[in-house]
C-alpha cells in the first residue's frame, strides 16, 4: 500500500496524571488503508484513536493530517474534525432528533449543504446502510445494530477523508454485529481510509490491510493481517492472540 500519507503520528504521548497511557506511538495511516488496532483492554488503543481527532489532547508528540500539523496551537480543530469521521462504541446518536436530522445536522449547521440537498444526501446514505425507511424514526425506535449503521451514515454525511471506529460492535448484541461489520466491509471496499479499534479478529483478518497491536502504550506489532495472526513475533501478542482466537 503506498497511497499518500493521511495521518502521520510521531511520538504520540498521552498522560492522565501519573498514568502514562500512550508512551510514544509513531505510525502512518495512508489513503485507502484499513488499519485494525488491537490490544488488551486498558492498553491505550481507544485513547490513541481519540487522539487522532483530538477528542483527547495529546500530552506529547505530533500528529499531521494531510500534511498539516493538527497538534499545534494554531490548528483549527473544528475544520480538521469535519474531515475525520468518528463512530463510537455507544453510537451517541442525538436522541431528540429524527434519523434524518441526526445525519443532516452537522452539514446544514456548518453551511456545507442546504437543507434539501442535505436531505437528499441523507436518503442516499440511508439507502447505503440499508435503512431507507427510517428517516423519520427517532433513535430510541431502532435496534443497536441499526443505531450504529445510522452513526456510520451520520459520519459519512460530512464526506470525511478518514473514518475512526472506536469498538463499533462492542456494545451490540451478538446477532447485530454482522450487519454493522458488513457495512464497514462495504465502506472499506469503496476505498474509505479507516482506523478501527476492534475485538473482532475475523474482521481484522479479512477486511483490514494492516493490523497494529498496542500494549503498554506502545505499538508492539505492526503487520499485514495474515502475518499478524499466524506468525506474530511479539510474545505479548502471541499470548493475547492465544486467549482471544
Amino acid at each position: 500500500m503506498n497511497g499518500e500519507v493521511l495521518l502521520d503520528i510521531q511520538g504520540l504521548e498521552k498522560h492522565f496524571g501519573d498514568n502514562r497511557v500512550l508512551r510514544g506511538i509513531t505510525t502512518q495511516i495512508r489513503k485507502g488503508e484499513v488499519v485494525a488496532i488491537i490490544g488488551p483492554s486498558g492498553c491505550g488503543k481507544s485513547t490513541f484513536l481519540r487522539s487522532l481527532n483530538l477528542l483527547e489532547e495529546p500530552t506529547g508528540g505530533k500528529i499531521f493530517f494531510e500534511g498539516a500539523e493538527i497538534t499545534g496551537p494554531d490548528a483549527d480543530v473544528n475544520k480538521i474534525r469535519r474531515k475525520i469521521g468518528m463512530v463510537f462504541q455507544q453510537f451517541n446518536l442525538f436522541p431528540h432528533l429524527t434519523i434524518r436530522r441526526n445525519i443532516t445536522l452537522a452539514p446544514v449547521k456548518l453551511g456545507l449543504l442546504g437543507r434539501e440537498e442535505a436531505n437528499r444526501r441523507a436518503d442516499e446514505l440511508l439507502a447505503r446502510v440499508g435503512l431507507p425507511d427510517k428517516a423519520n424514526a427517532y433513535p430510541s425506535q431502532l435496534s443497536g445494530g441499526q443505531k450504529q449503521r445510522i452513526a456510520i451514515a451520520r459520519a459519512m454525511a460530512m464526506n470525511p477523508d478518514v473514518m475512526l471506529f472506536d469498538e463499533p460492535t462492542s456494545a451490540l448484541d451478538p446477532e447485530m454485529v454482522g450487519e454493522v461489520l458488513e457495512i464497514m466491509r462495504e465502506l472499506a471496499e469503496s476505498g474509505m481510509t479507516m482506523v478501527v479499534v476492534t475485538h473482532e479478529m475475523g474482521f481484522a483478518r479479512e477486511v483490514a490491510s494492516r493490523a497494529v497491536f498496542i500494549d503498554e502504550g506502545v505499538i508492539k506489532e505492526d503487520n499485514a493481517p495474515e502475518k499478524f495472526f499466524t506468525s506474530a513475533q511479539n510474545p505479548r501478542l502471541r499470548d493475547f492472540l492465544s486467549k482471544v482466537l
Binding site: K79, R81, R82, G85, M86, F88, N92, L105, A106, R154
Partner: peptide, 15 residues
Amino acid sequence: IDPGQMEAGRSLGLT
C-alpha cells in the same frame, strides 16, 4: 447529558 453527546457533536466538526 452523556458526555458522548458533546463528543459526537464535536467529532462532526460542530463547535
